[in-house]
Design a protein around this nucleic acid. Structure first.
Lengths: 135, 135
DNA sequence: AATAAATCCAAGCGGAATACTTGGATATAG
DNA sequence: CTATATCCAAGTATTCCGCTTGGATTTATT
């Protein structure tokens, strides 16, 4: 079980924005260079982050992105879900026909796993990451 | 973030074995039919489960698979990891070059998520699933 | 006004991984 | 000796991931 690059790159990119919070917009190019990501790929991630209301964009020359709120107001879980989609280990959880069997004995398990993941990522803000703080 | 079919099918198949524990071997065909899985695909999963020491096989006619131990002695986490590989959300965790940046501020996060997943799946046995018991 | 630097947007595309199939060889109950 | 099973190694089709391409639009700077 692995997270896609979207989630990993996304959180790292947001950390970069957090590190320079209050110092004006940062361009995708800057972030991509610092982390050696593809900048055209990063564009797509920021598009999703913007749609989720986590960043604001400033267009034109000298433009770039800034965090939509202070780093301690941005939940890591929101970043991850906006890029990866919901944490859903099996369609079990939302779907009606639980893995084709009505009396599915594993549903509870997947829900518990999902809850525990959300528990971790929803109790941590960007500021916490900067501080190296445990939840 | 999603589990592959291996993990999901695998746990369900093991639940089937647990439900009929002590009543002799069950063939792949039986399980595959009950859950409407492909039986040739299931073969591969059971091969991995056997390698992990979670099931025993009886070859030949009237053969099949049985749990290697009592249902309360089989950890769900072992089933999942034997099929999915280790729960490693980013190479961060084991790899040396943490996402290309030495001072990676996200490493702790991924480790905490991983730990919380393992916490859930390692504190639950097949018997717990049968009982519908929370961990 | 012109230019350069940036976001925006939609589509395409190659490679890898997933989910599954195929074709056998071997073992064993009846 | 035959049917039923596990065993095993490839092959394959499809999907998804990670990334590229080709623009259009916006805006600071000169």
């Amino acid at each position: 079980m692995k997270l896609s690059t979207k989630g990993r790159y996304g959180v790292l990119a947001m950390v970069e924005l957090a590190l320079q919070y209050g110092q004006g917009p940062i361009s995708i190019k800057e972030i991509a260079e610092k982390q050696s990501f593809s900048d055209s790929y990063m564009e797509q991630l920021f598009s999703a982050l913007k749609r989720a209301g986590l960043v604001k964009s400033i267009r034109g020359a000298r433009g770039g992105y800034i965090l939509a709120r202070k780093p301690d107001q941005i939940i890591v879980g929101d970043i991850i879900r906006s890029l990866e989609g919901p944490i859903e280990l099996a369609q079990c959880i939302t779907g009606s026909d639980c893995e084709k069997s009505p009396e599915c004995l594993t549903k509870e398990l997947w829900i518990d796993v999902m809850d525990s993941i959300n528990q971790v990522i929803d109790h941590r803000t960007l500021q916490d990451l900067l501080d190296g703080k445990e939840a």
